[in-house]
Computed example of a mutant assay.
Amino acid sequence: MRAGQDNIDASSAPLIEHLIELRGRLIWALCAFFIAFILCYFLSAHIFDILAQPYLRAARWRHIDLGPAGFNYTSPLGAFTTYLQIAAFGGMFLSFPVAATQLYKFVAPGLYRNERQAFLPFLVASPLLFLLGALLVYFVAMPMLMWFSLGFVRAAASPDEVSVNFLNVMSEYLSTVMALILAFGLVFQMPVVTSLMVRAGMITTQSLVGKRKWAIVLAFVVAAVLTPPDPTSQIALAVPAILLYEVSIITARMIERKQAEQSSDTDPSGERSA
């Protein structure tokens, strides 16, 4: 038994009961996803209008007249499959809190009380950081990417020149948006992951500081892999990643300081000192 900690919740349930409980938790999570999927599908056209705003803003910046049709689909079911993708992506995002809660309820009985209290802030911070990354994509990365892409559009000024037009396909645009949101959302989980690793004793603040130069290089490499091959979106991901690494160092230092204080307040027998 760990000194100064509550015992793990007593449970003599056999494996089959744990599997039954896991099945129930999964059913709740799947039901939440299904409800969110249906809701997002009926709103998929409006959601796509919202997702299209970065493109429309970039076109206005470039003074490009999009005409009556700003987006196209190239197959009979192109728009339908695009709306299904929107519904699936939105359903996963909206149902994540339910899935995370069910996961926490499943593993919580096997954790000490202080471990449960330490785990809850990360459970809350994870979706908030993912949302912050998605907002950065929507307001910064996508407008910059579309502004860069529309910069190659040109009209023929003479019979000897050819015009260059941008055919914006619904499915390809949505795939780009989803890929950027996923990339930024995952990168924005860095403080959560590093904090958990510090609590587990896998890394230290000193090691994070010592690997800062490598982290900067890795940020640009990851940005080049996860984003489209244009410098604007790569910089838009790499710079926040470097800033988040610095935030991770600060968070790790705070965690280690708190752990040191708790260790100094506890005597070897596990009792808190007077």
Rank of each mutant, 00 (worst) to 15 (best):
V162Q: 15
A200S: 15
A3G: 10
L56I: 12
Q234E: 09
L167V: 15
V177A: 13
A118I: 02
S171P: 10
F96Q: 01
G4L: 05
Y73V: 09
T74Q: 14
V222E: 05
A88P: 05
A238V: 03
L218I: 12
A87E: 04
L131V: 15
A45N: 08
T227Y: 00
E246H: 01
K211S: 13
V153K: 06
V193K: 04
F119R: 09
F48L: 12
L145R: 00
A241M: 13
M178N: 13
D65I: 07
E21F: 06
P228F: 03
T176A: 13
F148W: 10
I35T: 11
V239C: 04
F166G: 10
I35F: 12
M197R: 04
I216C: 04
F106H: 02
Q85N: 14
V239G: 03
W28F: 12
L150I: 07
P54Q: 03
P228I: 02
D9I: 10
I216R: 04
E115W: 00
L94P: 10
R154E: 09
A179S: 15
L43T: 07
V221I: 14
P109Y: 00
I242K: 02
P229N: 04
F96P: 06
Q85H: 11
I86G: 09
I16L: 15
A274L: 15
L123V: 10
F139G: 08
M178W: 07
G201M: 03
A36D: 02
Q189V: 08
V98G: 07
L196K: 00
A179H: 03
A99S: 11
A100H: 00
P240N: 02
P228H: 03
P109A: 00
P191F: 00
I255K: 01
T81E: 14
I181M: 14
A87G: 06
M254G: 12
L111K: 00
